[in-house]
Every structure is written in structure tokens, then in C-alpha cells.
Write a protein that binds this DNA or RNA. Structure first.
Length: 478
RNA sequence: GGCCCGGUCGCCUAGUGGUCCAGGGCGCUUCCCUUUCAAGGAAGAGGUCAGGGGUUCGAAUCCCCUCCGGGCUACCA
């Protein structure tokens, strides 16, 4: 069994194509198949520099590997279509000789004019077969000097059909198929010619791709037929749609895998979430690692309807996977998201306390910055609880400072009873007391648990910040 | 316009003729837990199964029509 991922290097690795790649990966892995990465760069105008690197980086990060590809080589190298031109040209020639294709010398202008006319008459727009009846010998002669393309000779009657692995039986009338361009005037093949040839030559056993391709299946069928090749089983998997139901694109937000990585998403979460758009195990389980997926995913369970992108749900899975990390692993993953100068020992101590408070790895920084900088500016009035006032708050902070100063060791377990006792003495709720202290030491009203925050901050700094809060309060008007 | 594909709570989905006056998850609401926020626990709101006809003792599930959405209709992939 051999399957392929066939991205086009026309931009950053797209989250939607990852879902299709993932399904291919799972399908192959669970049957010990061979995975092939083939770069489909037959449109020279749309190439984007660095796109191949982006594909490699993204897939590696996601934990998706393959056996044969541009950099890893293989029995059918090269794996980049632009490096395989002679192969396509030879086959296009063969189709001409078989009478299954023909030279077309129409200019782009003529083509545009024909289309405009058809549109005006509300007819289906397609090539009018103007060059189809040029005698082969004459056409071959002209092709030596004139710019030309090679077109498929589509039949006038008959039906074409496949039994798609996800959609079931699909049929087309042959007369609705146009004389598709197979080889462009620049000598490059179109997608349609190149896929069919490569899938055959590379011995791809199962074609799994996005369902935006079903419309071109009949063309491919004709090409397979002309060569006399067997058509491999096909599976057209549903698309990942934007919230508006259209193809997911940049205007719906970021779609580049690299962006999700930078935004603090875990590859585990992305894989888990993506696997569930278009597939369901049929049970109520929904948290799956890659290994789980390899075990339970089934092509038969893939949906035929497209699914919409749901960031909230991705965030949920990201939280789930962050919470599953060991503390050491969490710290390791946090590495790129916190300044290099921040003390890793402190980071490690606070990490377990923010682990269940993060939606993304990016969230950590703001929650713990008070541990690494004294610059925690806040408005003095935030210190004062709703039902209290300036004087009582200053008094409470002074008492807290005094209590804390005597604690040894300065740990959460020791701090907790001390502060609880103080709140009782003061007649304050723990909520109010802790709230004021929290503001004093972190500058924010939400964050990791207070007692542990004090512990990690350390006695000296904690006392100093509470002292500063008292001073601030002194400057506030009643 | 033509050809294809699709249509179950806002979203991801379970469901393949009866056990479905449709189940789970996300999100939302409320409560519990609680030093904030989360996390966790509990409860709840939310679906004329796109609509209409059939078939059948019985339909979300089968058939037909309609409507809506999407893809393709390029010398893009």
C-alpha cells in the first residue's frame, strides 16, 4: 500500500491541507503502508519561495513523517514535478500518437473571446474544439514552430463513474467533459496530466485528497483510460470550511500551521482537533493522540459533509493537551514563549500552578511576569476591596506584611493558615484580603494561586511589594 | 447557466427502518467546589433531523420533488 501527500508550494502549509495529509498518514500507518511526499509545482506563476521549507517544518512539528520525498529520495525520484517534465512530455506525446489528445494552437485571446460569447449566450463555457480536427500530420508539423498546448480528446458519449470510498458511487456523462489542456505551452503539464502519470508511475495504491477534486475525476478517468492504466481506489475527503461555509482561507484568520505554532498551540491539540473535523470514532471518546488515531481511525467513518473551523473547540483541546503534559515537558514547551533572561528555576516552580490556567502556551507569560520583573504598575485603587476603604486597606496590608515577615519557611503551606488567621482577626473575607495582596504583588487581579505565588516570589520581594502598595495607598485621596 | 457534492442543536458530531418524543463534545446559563482565574463536579437552555410528498405497521434513516449551501466550470492547484 502506497499513499501520497501532494501539496503545492504556493504558500505556507495550510491547516486545511494538513487535515487531508493527516488522513493519508493515518490510513498508511495503520496498514504499514509507504508514505510519499510529492511537490506539485506545475504552476510556475504561483510558486512561493520557502513554501517547501514551510511544508517540511510544519509536518515535522506535527509529528507527521513520510518515506519518500524531495529531500529523502526514493525509487521514483525526483519527487518534485517541475523536475519530471520529460516524463510528462513523453506521455503527452504518447497520447497524441494514440489519438487520445491533440495539438491546439488557439491563442489565449481567442479562447477568451469564445468564452465571452458562450457566456453571453448563457451556454456552458468550454473549449469549442477548434483545433481538434486539424489533420495530425499538419498539426505535428505546425507544432514544431508554433506555440501550442496539448488537449485531451474528450468523447461525445458514454458515462464515467467511480465508487468513491467516502461518497460512494458518482457518475458523469462524458459529453459534459471538456477538452482539458494536458500540457501547457510552457512545456509544463497541468495538474490533471501530472497527477495521473505520477500516481501511476509512483504506484500509488489509494488516492485520498480533498473533495474539491471530485469535479476533475472524469478527466482523470479519461486519461487513465487512454493510457490503459488501472484506476486506483479514490477517497475524496470533506473540506475544512470557514465559519461562513466557504473554503477556509486567510480572511477567516490564520491558516498557516506555523502561525498556530507561534500562537502557542500544541501539535497534539491541532492533530486531535483536526482529526475530528470530518471523522468520528462512533463512540463518545474524543481525546486522541496520534497513536490512538492510528489505531482507531477508519476511512469508513469519514463524513461526506464539510465541517466548519471552530477555534473555540481547538482552544478546548489545546487546554486538554497542556494539562496532560508533565511539568518538565510543559517547561520545555514554554521555552520559546518566555524571555530568555527569565530564570528557568522559577519558571519550573510556578509552571504546575499555571498549567490548568492556560488556553495556549502564549498565555503563560502574562500570568507569571510578576515573578521576573518589578515593573508591575497598577492603579492604587485596585488594592481597595469593594466594601472597604483606603485606611483599612492600608492597615490590612501592614498587618499582612508583619505576619508574613515572621513566617519560616516561606511556603504556601505555611502562608495559607497565617493569612487565613489574619483575615479572621481583621474581620475581612479571605477573598478581600487575598485580593489586595494579589494586586500588591502581581499588579493583576487574576493569576496563579496566591500562596504559591508568594512562595515563589520569595519573602523579601513579597514584603517589599506589599510595602510599596502601602506607600501607594498613602498617596490616594480618600 | 451547466456538471457534481452536501444539508441532524450556534459549532464538531452519534445515528445506516423500531431500543431516538434524537445521544456526546465545544460554546452558553445556573449551581457546587474555592484565595482570584482556571480546572473539576452537577444541572440546564438549545434540534419541526432543510421543506414537501411518498414507501412502510413504523423513517433522521429508503424513493421522488423543491429549497438552501458548497466545489468545479483556467495554458491554478
Amino acid at each position: 500500500m502506497r499513499v501520497r501527500f501532494a501539496p503545492s508550494p504556493t504558500g505556507a502549509l495550510h491547516i486545511g491541507s494538513v487535515r487531508t495529509i493527516l488522513y493519508n498518514y493515518l490510513f498508511a500507518r495503520q496498514r504499514d503502508g509507504t508514505l510519499i511526499l510529492r511537490v506539485e509545482d506545475t504552476d510556475q506563476d504561483r510558486l512561493v519561495a520557502g513554501a517547501i521549507d514551510s511544508i517540511y517544518d510544519g509536518l515535522h512539528w506535527l509529528g507527521i513523517g513520510w518515506h519518500e520525498g524531495p529531500q529523502e529520495g526514493g525509487p521514483h525520484a525526483p519527487y518534485v514535478q517541475s523536475e519530471r517534465l520529460p516524463l510528462y512530455q513523453k506521455h503527452a506525446q504518447e497520447l497524441i500518437e494514440k489519438g487520445a489528445a491533440y495539438y491546439c494552437f488557439c491563442s489565449k485571446e481567442r479562447l477568451a473571446a469564445v468564452r465571452a460569447e458562450q457566456e453571453a449566450r448563457k451556454e456552458p463555457t468550454r473549449y469549442d474544439r477548434h483545433c481538434r480536427n486539424i489533420p495530425p500530420a499538419e498539426a505535428a508539423e505546425r507544432a514544431k514552430t508554433e506555440p501550442h498546448v496539448i488537449r485531451l480528446k474528450a468523447p461525445d458519449e458514454g458515462t464515467l463513474a467511480i465508487d468513491d470510498l467516502v461518497h460512494g458511487h458518482i457518475e458523469w456523462q462524458a459529453d459534459t467533459i471538456e477538452d482539458q489542456v494536458l500540457l501547457k505551452s510552457d512545456g509544463f503539464p497541468t495538474y490533471h496530466l501530472a497527477v495521473v502519470i505520477d500516481d501511476h508511475v509512483m504506484e500509488i495504491s489509494h488516492i485520498m485528497r480533498g473533495d474539491e477534486w471530485v469535479a476533475s475525476v472524469p478527466k482523470h478517468l479519461l486519461i487513465y483510460g487512454a493510457f490503459g492504466w488501472d484506476v486506483p481506489p479514490m477517497a475524496h475527503v470533506p473540506s475544512v470550511l470557514g465559519p461562513d461555509g466557504k473554503k477556509l482561507s486567510k480572511r477567516h484568520g490564520s491558516t498557516a500551521v506555523s502561525q498556530f505554532r507561534e500562537d502557542g498551540y500544541l501539535p497534539e491539540a491541532l492533530i486531535n482537533y483536526l482529526a475530528l473535523v470530518g471523522w468520528s470514532p462512533g463512540t463518545e471518546d474524543e481525546v486522541f493522540s496520534m497513536d490512538d488515531l492510528i489505531r482507531v481511525w477508519k476511512i469508513e467513518q469519514v463524513q461526506s459533509a464539510g465541517g466548519k473551523w471552530d477555534k473555540e473547540r481547538l482552544d478546548f483541546f489545546n487546554g486538554v493537551w497542556i494539562r496532560k503534559l508533565s511539568v518538565d515537558e510543559l517547561v520545555r514547551r514554554l521555552e520559546p514563549f518566555v524571555p530568555a533572561e527569565w530564570d528557568r528555576a522559577i519558571l519550573t516552580r510556578i509552571a504546575p500552578h499555571i498549567q490548568e490556567r492556560m488556553k495556549t502556551l502564549k498565555d503563560a507569560k502574562d500570568q507569571i511576569r510578576f515573578l521576573f520583573t518589578d515593573d508591575i504598575g497598577y492603579e492604587a485603587k485596585l488594592l481597595i476591596p469593594k466594601k472597604s476603604d483606603r485606611v483599612s486597606t492600608a492597615e490590612a496590608l501592614a498587618r499582612a506584611r508583619a505576619v508574613l515577615s515572621e513566617l519560616e519557611p516561606f511556603t504556601g503551606a505555611v502562608i495559607q493558615p497565617a493569612l487565613e488567621g489574619l483575615a479572621e482577626q481583621l474581620g475581612w473575607s479571605r477573598r478581600d484580603l487575598n485580593g489586595a495582596i494579589r494586586i500588591a504583588i502581581t499588579g493583576r487581579d487574576v493569576g496563579p494561586p496566591l500562596y504559591e505565588s508568594l512562595e515563589v516570589l520569595g519573602k523579601e520581594k513579597s514584603l517589599k511589594r506589599i510595602g510599596m502598595a502601602q506607600e501607594l495607598l498613602a498617596g490616594v485621596r480618600a
